[in-house]
Design a protein around this nucleic acid. Structure first.
Lengths: 341, 341
DNA sequence: ATTCCTGTTGCAAACGTTTGCAATGGGCGT
DNA sequence: ACGCCCATTGCAAACGTTTGCAACAGGAAT
């Protein structure tokens, strides 16, 4: 008992509520929106009824009328490596922070995972859906050009990824080239001379990290870095790394892994072969994921500030939504020396 | 050149397109929807124009009219442990698989992270928003009762979590109690007698794991399990675990961690104290996350089949959307013996 | 008493799509 | 040659909200 004070009339629309309150739908709309064009008494009455019936205005209708949805699209293109990435720790952590930031700003988040290979206009489709006010692209993958194309005609888009001179889309990301330099310098400072790079350089971010490392070895007159292309998904990566190690063992004394995840796998591979780290081979990763501090020995790495990245993405996107033109944001990476290099 | 065949007339609505094609909006709608009530010739013409102008029907309008949105809400309640969970590896992996499955079924995914403590009707608000056709709740957290309340009046909801006898909401999850039993049995089989449980049992899933372990020690007449409540976020957990170990060291010879993440941290803590694993203390985790196979020594654990879980969630939700009444789905956990127990 | 505000409210037209119903036309059977 | 049916299309009313404009009341100023 006590429950039946909620009238049997279900109040699903603003019009129902208006009827109950004895006012017009317009007034209800204004009252609920908090615009001050409505009498305090009336507003309170309306709010009371709304609360009592658990009424919430339909977001679809509101969105249609106002031509904005309160939803930000977040899309993860799976370019060169279909399986991985949506479960990749780095992207997931970034996504988590994004969710936090967007919620804080009153936006909802619509997540979409796309395979550009099977779906050429993945980006236009998302943008044109009318469901989102803006879009955040997590990772350029191998879709740099397509993103550039879209950037010309569509303002509210920010991309996580690598910044290239003169690019047209607004990007937030770590200075990968600098990160690569830091990594290589650390390996060399720890005593390594003949380096290898573990990772797939068709991903533009990884290419930049590789390039940074190359800068260093070239400057110091060391032999060129051996590229060891590797997929990101743990299942495939394990075997590939094993094969790589088989092939280059003895010819290298330092490994720069494109990712902590790869570094961790590499560490296991080295252990299995009885190779001492950092004794025989120095190893450094990238990202500073939680795993980096829990390998044995703990992984030296180049830290990306993921939280700052998320904040930057959202901040820039909001300003673009407000019509501002924004520059890209390049975050400084930070060397974290632990025990593998 | 060759680019200007795209007429300058921007075609944003179905009506624009209709004008261009010389038909009525209704026909365009039918053509684009693929319903076979339209002449092949006409359809092709319309499709051609649509393609040429990159036209996509507005999802908001469509959703409003059809009273369905093609969007599934995924909500992660952060109950007892505000900070964590959205970056928790387990939930993130589940989320990744969910994204895959939902995409496959033609649904979009709207992600929302909520703090029930600050926002009592988080679930009603999401459901009542009119933006989603159904909802998947990831983790019951400490919100079991609220979910139960909602389940009575709202069909299309499926929850990841623990199954309790006679509950009213449809849940998909691992048999946590059985998992707890497997873990305890393994610890004991490895030689442990005095067990501790690492984790916060106010989370219902963890409570079930704990209960399963208790079943075993009771049956075998061993001393009761010592509870070591611990937050999930790595930053807080590290210290808490250190303090716990300090307190119970020497009184235990086996640890059942509620999560692989906690187990990995515990392993580090034990190493720092010079405790041999599994020599002095046996250790077992839960989940079988990637990290489990890369600790040193690799972690024995109880595996949850995350992919199957995601598939189950989506499958049940779709059937509920179709009006079916569905039973809960309880997945069997699987013991994975590595080297810590 | 008349006029002019100001503060509230109602009216009705959007927003862009879908869909039941009716209208049109051509082909076919008789 | 007539009528009927079927395939295709157009018409217009929804879906639920927002918002410019107009209307209205009551009070203040003249």
């Amino acid at each position: 008992m006590g429950e039946d004070r909620t009238a049997r009339t279900a109040v699903r629309t603003i019009t129902d509520l208006a009827r109950l309150a004895g006012v017009s739908p317009g007034t209800v709309s204004r009252a609920l929106a908090g615009k001050s064009l409505v009498n305090t008494k009336t507003r309170e009455k309306i709010e009371a009824i709304a609360r009592e019936h658990g009424f919430r205005p339909n977001q679809m209708a509101s969105g249609l009328r106002r031509q904005k949805t309160g939803v930000i699209g977040v899309v993860i293109p799976l370019g060169h490596d279909t399986r991985q990435q949506i479960s990749d720790t780095f992207f997931m952590t970034l996504l988590g922070f994004l969710a936090d930031e967007l919620t804080l700003e009153g936006y909802d988040l619509m997540l979409r995972r796309v395979v550009p290979k099977d779906d050429a206009d993945w980006l236009d489709r998302f943008i044109g859906s009318g469901m989102i006010d803006g879009v955040i692209v997590i990772g350029q993958s191998d879709q740099f050009d397509r993103i550039e194309d879209v950037a010309d005609g569509y303002g509210p888009m920010v991309v996580w990824g690598n910044h290239a001179e003169g690019q047209r889309h607004c990007v937030v990301g770590t200075d990968n080239r600098l990160g690569g330099r830091l990594a290589a310098e650390r390996l060399i400072a720890a005593g390594a001379q003949r380096l290898a790079f573990l990772g797939d350089t068709t991903a533009i971010e990884f290419a930049a990290r590789f390039a940074g490392a190359e800068d260093v070895v070239r400057r110091m007159g060391l032999p060129p870095i051996i590229e060891l292309p590797t997929h990101l998904s743990p299942e495939r990566a394990s075997d590939e790394i094993a094969r790589h190690l088989e092939a280059v063992m003895g010819r290298i004394d330092g490994v720069f892994a494109a990712t902590d995840t790869l570094a961790a796998l590499c560490l296991t591979g080295l252990r299995e072969r009885g190779v001492a780290v950092p004794g025989d081979i120095k190893l450094i990763g990238f990202d500073d994921l939680p795993i980096a501090s829990h390998t044995v020995p703990p992984l030296s790495t180049v830290k990306q500030d993921i939280a700052a990245g998320a904040r930057g993405l959202v901040d820039l996107l909001l300003r673009r939504l407000a019509g501002e033109q924004t520059e890209s944001l390049v975050l400084p990476p930070q060397l974290v020396v632990r025990q593998t290099a």
